[in-house]
């Protein structure tokens, strides 16, 4: 969105909801280091409005730092970022007016009750008494904490705290929501509730920037996923695109004798070429392992006159992608593929 365009301001202070296809978040070359330690080493992002974006990465990859920069908590050392049409460095107030942030640690006041927490946020948003009470009541009901509205947040369970936390984030109807590891430490049930919440928010047209270490979560929720490792985005795409980036479904054949192994390898030259593992006497042959493909494969082996000692079919999931792309520099992708037998 060109910066010269200054649309009329909505209640949230941000530009009117960007049209379809506009970017809710964009970043170019974001860098951040603490002392000698480079946390972000040039991050580019483009997140269309109304979509869910998941930033996936192991601990210490720089996920939280990215959220902190985009939500104006800290300044980047280099690069630029726009959120909801505002530059995070030059127009932080505009960004803040448009976003809601739920960090890794519940951002609520333990000494206040659930209702007081929501009213505090409503007051800070200058909603006015009546509107504030109305919003608080709605959110208490929506997040199933109305019956404990008068209890202090300190007495809440982890799942309830997260729900209150999200409810506080939503008081101001933000157009862009950052969720930094929203389900870390939650039990499976609370995790599913959170997923439902995210889905309902997206249905309302909100853009969600999610960080997670859980592949399943990214797979379930995100339109696009970026894998962050060592301060760089090592892969980006839809869940399916990512799965396609690493060696796909394959059949593994193991042999007992070296000459059998060599003859089998010779039977799969060129396009159908097999990936060799000379030490293990194992061949990895691309193919999705359905019956027809397997029959062809065995026919070839028979034609070559060799018998495999063992065979197994592997289908990649996001775990494979994650393990392949993160860790030892992400170069030896094929070597990191998890050995999941299906």
């Amino acid at each position: 969105m060109p910066s010269s365009v200054m649309p009329t301001t909505t209640r949230n202070g941000g530009p009117q909801s960007p049209g379809v296809g506009a970017d809710a978040i964009s970043a170019v070359g974001l860098r951040k280091s603490y002392g000698d330690k480079t946390v972000l080493d040039g991050i580019d992002l483009r997140i269309p409005a109304g979509s869910v974006f998941a930033l996936l990465g192991p601990n210490g990859a720089g996920k939280t730092t990215t959220v902190q920069i985009l939500s104006t908590l800290i300044a980047a050392d280099g690069g630029q970022a726009q959120v909801a049409g505002h530059d995070v460095a030059t127009s932080p107030a505009g960004v803040r007016a448009a976003i809601g942030v739920t960090g890794q640690f519940a951002a609520l006041d333990d000494l206040l009750t659930a209702e007081e927490n929501l009213l505090l946020v409503a007051d800070l948003l200058r909603l006015g008494k009546r509107e504030g009470r109305k919003r608080a009541k709605e959110l208490l009901e929506r997040f199933d904490i109305a019956d404990v509205a008068g209890n202090r947040a300190a007495t809440f369970s982890g799942g309830m705290r997260r729900r209150l936390d999200i409810a506080m984030t939503l008081v101001g109807d933000p157009r862009v929501i950052f969720l930094d590891e929203p389900t870390t430490g939650l039990d499976p049930r609370s995790r599913r509730t959170m997923w439902e919440t995210v889905r309902s928010l997206v249905a309302g047209g909100v853009t969600i920037f999610l960080t997670t270490q859980y592949l399943e979560e990214a797979d379930q929720l995100a339109d696009r996923i970026a894998v962050l490792d060592g301060g760089r985005i090592v892969a980006e795409g839809t869940s399916d695109e990512l799965k396609a980036q690493i060696p796909g479904s394959h059949v593994r054949l193991r042999f007992n004798e070296t000459d059998e192994y060599e003859r089998a390898a010779a039977a799969f030259p060129g396009a159908v070429g097999a990936l060799r593992d000379d030490e293990e006497l194992t061949l990895r042959i691309a193919g999705d392992g359905d019956l027809a493909a397997l029959r062809t494969l065995f026919d070839r082996l028979d034609a070559a006159g060799v018998r495999a000692a063992d065979f197994s079919v592997h289908t990649p999931d996001l775990d494979d992608v994650f393990l392949a792309l993160t860790g030892d520099g992400g170069t030896g992708a094929a070597l990191h593929v998890k050995e999941t037998q299906r």
């Binding site: 505009g94 803040r96 942030v101 519940a106 951002a107 609520l108 946020v121 948003l125 936390d165 101001g172």
Partner: peptide, 13 residues
Amino acid sequence: TEGIVNRFRTMNI
């Protein structure tokens, strides 16, 4: 040391 201050900081106040 608690999360609440980051909520305040990310709000337009």
